[in-house]
Design a protein around this nucleic acid. Structure first.
Lengths: 203, 203
DNA sequence: GTCTATAATTCGATAGAC
DNA sequence: GTCTATCGAATTATAGAC
């Protein structure tokens, strides 16, 4: 029993260390962005040595990519792209579309604290061109198709940019800048307040 | 003529150096944000020694504050706070309010390339708490009162957060993240596209 | 697999000559 | 007023002992 299968769910020691690093990295990148996050701080949060981060992820950029993929992919699989998990919009009546999209988007931001892929990505995208390109790719590859499925491609093309502006504007003021007038609202108030504007775009 | 009044508009040599540093700093902060901007890079852009930056502005934070104030105050005076220059909203008919606010906001972003105070501020505010606090102060001190003047304080309180989300969402997707669906629009299309959503909020 | 030690840079900031 | 020289701290990244 020298090289032991660890008691917890068959994970090896290395896999647990790797997971601890990723969790710490996700929190740091989400809270401080790419530049201000240091490998040393991540290592300290994870309770291991900074050199371990390099061993597992090669470089700071490699750690960022891994943190993004881990936050996005969840525990299910190993996809390396963020999954917005936009649901079954095709069954939603037109007059409930705005509320449905808003509710789903807010859930993605406030639901599981460990699932902060969007926060990680958006916080860094403002000063990191690579992260910004990723935001563009996510919305082009997921948000637009989801809209096109219910509105048709031509109407989706006309309003996709508007929808992205609305949703990211909400995220920016509520989660990144923490503007009091926006953070003061609870979830139901938030949906009710933003639905008319989004409906004006989707109609 | 040893200590010469320089030929150009009576400015002393030091004043011209100071102005060159400020211009370089503004461009760097606007393009890269606070953390990625280095004093050395600003000095190189301005064609002077890095120590001159320290001499004139004391610290990196001092340089940032000065760049913000210079971009905001323009050549007119010496105010040290950003001026959104929200105009005469009280004379605007209610059904043209959305277009007026949008047009003014877009002009502030695209008008004078040297007047990039909002870009400087927003780019840094996402990862710098001090800059974020400044964004909150600007909107609380200028955007909200301007709205209150036309809508009354109670209606302004209800929609001020929404308006900020809309406008900053536009700025984020167009100028910072450069989402193609948003950057593709020219100025008139932009106003026409965003006006319905803003009107839904202001109505 | 984990850590110690350190290399190699880069940064903000200071002291002082001219 | 401008620059040279440098300090001290922080960073990413590497080499190697255990």
């Amino acid at each position: 029993m020298i090289r032991s299968e660890q008691g917890e769910s068959g994970r090896t020691r290395g896999e647990r260390t790797r997971a601890a690093i990723l969790r710490a990295a996700r929190d740091r990148f989400a809270a401080q962005g790419y530049e201000r996050t240091t490998i040393r701080a991540v290592a300290a949060d994870a309770g291991i040595d900074p050199s371990m981060v390099m061993r597992y992820f090669g470089s700071k950029q490699g750690l960022f990519d891994a943190a993004l993929a881990a936050a996005a992919g969840g525990e299910g699989g190993g996809e390396d792209e963020i999954d917005l998990r936009i649901p079954d919009l095709s069954g939603v009546p037109a007059d409930r579309l705005a509320e449905t999209v808003l509710g789903h988007f807010i859930d993605r931001w406030e639901g599981d604290p460990a699932d902060d892929a969007l926060l990680v990505l958006l916080r860094s995208a403002v000063t990191n061109e690579q992260a910004a390109a990723r935001v563009r790719a996510v919305f082009a590859g997921q948000a637009f198709p989801a809209l096109a499925a219910v509105l048709g491609p031509e109407r989706a093309a006309a309003c996709a940019g508007l929808v992205v502006s609305q949703l990211l504007g909400l995220a920016l003021t509520r989660y990144l800048l923490r503007v009091p007038a926006v953070t003061a609202l609870d979830r139901p108030s938030l949906v009710a307040a933003y639905a008319p504007a989004l409906r004006a775009v989707l109609a």
